[in-house]
Design a protein around this nucleic acid. Sequence first.
RNA 1: GCCGCGUUGGUCAAUCGGUUAAGACGCCUCCCUUUCACGGAGGAAUGACGAGUUCGAUUCUCGUACGUGGUACCA
Length: 508
Amino acid sequence: MNKEVRTRFAPSPTGGLHLGGVRTALYSYLYAKKHAGTFVLRVEDTDQTRYVEGAEKYILDCLDWCGISPDESPLKSGPYAPYRQSERKPMYKQYALQLIENGHAYYAFDTPEDLEKMRTDLKSEKNPSPQYDHSTRMQMKNSLTLSAEEVNDLLAKNTPFVVRIKMPSNETISFTDMIRGEINNDSNLVDDKVLLKGDGMPTYHLAVVVDDYLMKITHAFRGEEWLPSAPVHIKLWDYLGWKNDMPQWAHLPLILKPDGNGKLSKRDGDRLGFPVFAMNWFDPKTNETTIGFKEIGFLPEAFINLLAMLGWHSGEEKELFSKDELISIFSMERVHKGGAKFDYEKAKWFNHEWVKTISDDRCMMLVKPILQAKGIVIKDDAYLLKVIGAVKDRCTLLNDFYTQSVYFFETPTSFDTDAIKPKWNEDKTAFFNELMSQCAASTNWNAVELETIFKELATAKNIKMGELQMPFRIMLVGGKFGPGVFEIAEMIGKESTFERVKMVLGML
RNA sequence: GCCGCGUUGGUCAAUCGGUUAAGACGCCUCCCUUUCACGGAGGAAUGACGAGUUCGAUUCUCGUACGUGGUACCA
């Protein structure tokens, strides 16, 4: 009775991998792993007109980055290969034929023009989108209205055709969704969906059912946008005689725009200034690159964590979960029914929390290439490690490490002198000159020593520390941020410190 | 239009008939810090609307409104 749990993520290789897609993959992965099952990736490339080169590899890369790699995929084959629907093309037709044989499907020879005509002729205010269904199919050109002879003749002449499902009349089609419970549909309202296209490729409807069956999928998770066509799939499982093997369905809520209405799209990200795709996506058709969560500086741990919390809740107050924790605590029953608006501020918060959590070593591995890409020369990893330890709490995104730590490596290119100019005077200039000469005389160069000299000198000169510390910070950092000034001075060294002090003194 | 699904603070959300309706993000105040963060302590802010069931509804039922998805030889 207890079958091995098998879940799948079945994206179309048509472009960047959307947040919602990653979440569907994540939930499928978590569910499979929780039940010691298998997570498979099946590429649904049945629409050759929308196929985009490189998209498949990209999707795999995204899943790898997220740490939710499939156990079976086009790249990591398994017992039910191939995992690309285009390569499974021959398998679908026999099932379409079987359906026709049993009277559950039929050939349709209508041309696009015929369909267009039917739709415009029947279109009315009451019915703005007429369907190819029980009420119209007998007026169309198909194997239901044509004689067997005519059909055979058309077939023999290689007339283009599609295969359509013959939806039953007056039937309530019901199924149980793991998230929403029982869902009922009136079969009269469902149209005769195309199962096999003119090019011989199956549509999604036939392909999911056939492949889920053949790949022994036990739990099928997908977006809520599939709910309306679920009755078609239910009937297909039934008509194909596989009813008892039908997976348990779960239709995930949508991820909505932060503002306005509708589901979150790539455009919203562009408009509002945040990523929507998991990783950078280069579109070969437009030659444009769309920024991804990875490249903008998210940690994969944070990314899956925030996605897990968008539409699911553990019931506890805790919000920060590692992948392993999610695996053990995740449950479909706690997934929400309603869509959730995406909140980038909260997303960043998750990342900030994770940045504070990861080890300095791991952080260094991640940050080093970012710094180097910006032209920073790192001679000493030990030094970088120290810098990271000093600025880590101040970085929300990995890319923040650049602004938070450049001045440890390079003399700032601009100094916020406006912040100190108004209150500047000769006494202060004298203070810094004297500070340098005293330090020059000392053999020690460390934060404690420097702070002591600094304070004593300030007292002697009768200048408030606050009046001096901020200028010192501006000299070393360039702006009003960063760790303790004396610590910074110690780290960048006596020479750099003097150089920067002199430089700014000259600007005042 | 029709059909499906949904609706707790600005956002994410807990609650599975009885609570002062959690918590988090964001926002505000204060403390820490003579910077910025981190950390700590507080604060403002919520059950779409209307009926019904019930001793009692945020919770159950129905209606309305609103949102959302679908209505393709796209997935």
